[in-house]
């Protein structure tokens, strides 16, 4: 039984309405929504792939690439925003050559936007596989990335 079959078998009345819970469960299970998952969900719920892709891209919570070895969570909550997290995010994106929600081709880094992570006093804040970095300026970014490039995560997040 595939992951999706298992998820759908647990629903009492699977149909169009189940799409978002199914997407959430698949992402929970696999870390991202793969092309294969979209097609399989479509077959199971009798929905076209374009519709599922449309719904999934509407919400920030769904990602379409697996996390990198190091997943950089950038807080875009109010306090971090006031303290310049927009510039920080765009610097990270520029340094890595990917956008938020994406993963570098070598699979090393991914960027994820998160809402407030409850560390407003440290704003702007980023968390790399759960390691918090406080009061980060755009110019700190190359140093932080260099650090993570040189080490291996103790355990993969997903």
């Amino acid at each position: 039984m595939s992951v999706i079959e298992k998820i759908i078998s647990q629903l009492s009345n699977p149909g169009r309405d189940s799409l978002i819970p199914v997407l959430q469960a698949v992402q929970e299970e696999e870390g991202f929504i793969s092309r294969e998952s979209v097609i399989e969900i479509g077959k199971a719920l009798d929905l076209p792939a374009s519709k599922i892709y449309g719904v999934a891209t509407f919400y920030n919570q769904f990602r379409f690439t697996p996390y990198g070895k190091w997943n950089i969570q950038v807080c875009r909550g109010t306090a971090c925003h006031v303290k310049g997290s927009a510039a920080l995010l765009s610097r990270i994106e520029r340094e890595l050559g990917i956008g938020a929600g994406e993963t570098t081709k070598d699979g090393f880094f991914s960027i994820e936007i998160v809402s407030c992570i409850g560390a407003c006093g440290l704003a702007p804040v980023i968390a790399v596989n759960g390691n918090f970095h406080a009061r980060v300026t755009p110019d700190d970014v190359p140093v932080i990335l260099k650090h993570y490039r040189s080490i291996q995560p103790e355990e993969s997040k997903q």
Binding site: S50, K51, Y53, T57, F58, Y59
Partner: peptide
Amino acid sequence: SAIDFVGR
């Protein structure tokens, strides 16, 4: 259904 609204 080849196309749909994508993104937000």
